[in-house]
Each structure stands twice: as structure tokens, then as C-alpha cells.
Computed example of a mutant assay.
Amino acid sequence: MNKKIVFALVIMGLLAISAANAQNSLILNNNNDDSMYQVSLLQAFMHGEYDGVVKVGDLKKHGDIGLGTFEGVNGEMIVLDGVVYQAAADGSINVMKDDEKIPFATVTKFDEDGNITNITASNFDDLTGQLNKTIEEYGTNNMYVIKIKGDFSNITVRSVEKQEKPYKEFTDVAAVDQKVFNHTDQTGTLVAVYFPEYMNELNMHGWHLHFLSDDKTKGGHVLGFDGLKGSAQIDEIHEFNMILPTDDTFKTMNFTEDMSNKISSVE
């Protein structure tokens, strides 16, 4: 056989193997998505950056579980099983349309890396203390989303009324426009998001919890609870992706202020 023909066939074979390997690599990456996707900075949100950055339809492409809020701080967001819910300031729960805009959110595609078959917690601090001990086994420098299903003797949640421009800082919003709801004998799910301390300039260090009842009638940002009995699924996350606002307000925002105390005051 002509040497030139043999050489050409070898090159074509190598290219075919390379293309097949690349295709297999893409398939593996898609099946093992282990990334946290965040819309904007929490610090920007705390300063009053409430204009939408992405739409609900786009957010769902990046995750099926998580939390956040909607344009103008229009209620609390709970993302669960691929559905984006709004816990509104009037206490109602709504499924949000794909064209709704989002100024801040954190989501991931849930992949169970571990579980806790039995959780009994007397209150919020007791639960987060137990979760801290649990993630020590995995590594406290990772990010986590934990899905906790259980029964609550009592749970207190909040939502926030939609804001109009000019926007005020979120500490001022929480002081005057926060609506608090107390519910007894509830069965539902906590979506718990954890960021390590070294990411404190991007999000809040520690645990951030939102709640949604099984009957989809109650929910919001968790302020506290009593008497939890349930189980948990753990997703350990090693990759972080973030999209930032593009408006002029964000471009000139001053991030030198330490926001730790303000963030803690509204959590």
C-alpha cells in the first residue's frame, strides 16, 4: 500500500479516537456535575443591588436545588426538585415563571454524596452544630447543600416585601419590610447551603436555610425552629461558578466595607 495512504489512514484513526475520547469526557462531565452556581455577590445584594441578573428559566439550567430571591427582593426563593418557588411577603407559596428575574441566588444540581438517616434537633443552633460535625468528616473547606426532610414542632420563617427604587440596603429592608410567620406541626424540607470561611467575601460563611412545607403552602427564610425529627441527604461541592451584574451601580460599588455584622444581623 502506498506510504502516503497508510499515513493518512493512521492520522484519521487517531483523530477518530481523539474525538471519541472528547465526546466521552463531555458525557462524563455532564453526568457528574459538581458545581455551585451563584448569581451576583451577597455583599452586592446587601448594599441594595436588587435588579435581576438572570431569569428563572436560565437559573434552572444550572441547578435543581438552592435558594435566593427575586427582582426587588420580591419574597424568598426555594429551589427544590427543579421547581423554583417564591415564599411571598403575604405568606403564600408560588411557582415562578421562567421569565421572572433574579438578583441573587445559589443553586446546584443535587448529587447525593452521603446521608444522615436520623436527625433529632431541638432547635436551629442544635441542628447547625450537628451539621458542622458531619461536614468535618468530609472537609470544612468544601461547599455543601444538604436536603433535610422532617417534622417540625414549630418553625419560624420570614419573607420580605418587594422593594421599589431607589433601593435601600438590605439591613434597612429587613428592619421595616420583613414579614415573619410562625407555623406549628409542619412536615417539609430544609434546603441548607454552606460556604467555608475563606469564601466570606463572596457569600455568607456558614449555614443559610430556607424551608418549604410538603403541601407547598408555607415556607421562607428560616429564622428558627423547635423539635425537628427527620433525615438528610448531603451534596459535597468542589466547583464554584458565578455571574455578576453588568449595570453601572455594581461597577462602581465599594466592597471595602466589612459586611459580616450586617449579614449576621439579618440571618
Rank of each mutant, 00 (worst) to 15 (best):
M1F: 15
N2T: 09
K3P: 12
K4C: 03
F7T: 12
A8E: 05
G13W: 02
G13Y: 02
L14F: 13
I17Q: 11
S18P: 10
A19F: 15
A19P: 06
A19H: 10
A19R: 04
S25A: 13
L28P: 11
L28I: 13
N31E: 13
Q38D: 03
V39T: 06
V39E: 02
L42H: 04
Q43N: 13
A44Q: 01
M46G: 03
G48T: 07
G48V: 04
Y50F: 10
D51Q: 09
D51M: 07
V54S: 03
V56L: 02
V56W: 01
V56C: 02
V56P: 00
G57Y: 00
K60N: 07
K61M: 11
L67E: 06
V73W: 12
V73I: 11
N74H: 09
V79A: 10
G82Y: 12
V83E: 09
Q86E: 14
A89E: 07
G91M: 08
I93M: 07
D98K: 06
D98C: 04
D98E: 13
K101G: 12
I102Q: 02
A105E: 02
A105I: 05
T106H: 10
V107G: 02
V107Y: 00
V107Q: 00
D111F: 04
D113Q: 08
T117P: 09
A121N: 03
D126L: 05
T128I: 07
G129D: 07
K133T: 10
T134Y: 04
G139Q: 11
Y144G: 00
I146V: 08
I146L: 13
D151L: 13
R158S: 12
R158K: 14
S159N: 02
Q163Y: 03
Q163S: 06
F170T: 04
V173I: 09
K179C: 07
V180C: 10
V180N: 10
H183R: 12
D185F: 14
D185Y: 13
Q186K: 15
T189P: 05
V191R: 01
V193F: 00
V193D: 00
F195Y: 08
M199G: 11
N200R: 09
L202M: 14
W207F: 15
L209W: 01
L209T: 07
F211N: 01
L212Y: 12
L212F: 09
S213R: 01
D214M: 11
G219W: 00
V222S: 05
F225G: 07
K229V: 11
S231A: 14
E239D: 14
F240C: 04
M242I: 15
I243W: 01
I243M: 08
P245C: 08
D247Y: 11
K251C: 08
T252G: 11
M253T: 02
N254I: 01
T256Y: 14
D258Y: 09
M259V: 06
N261Y: 05
K262W: 15
S265T: 09
E267R: 13
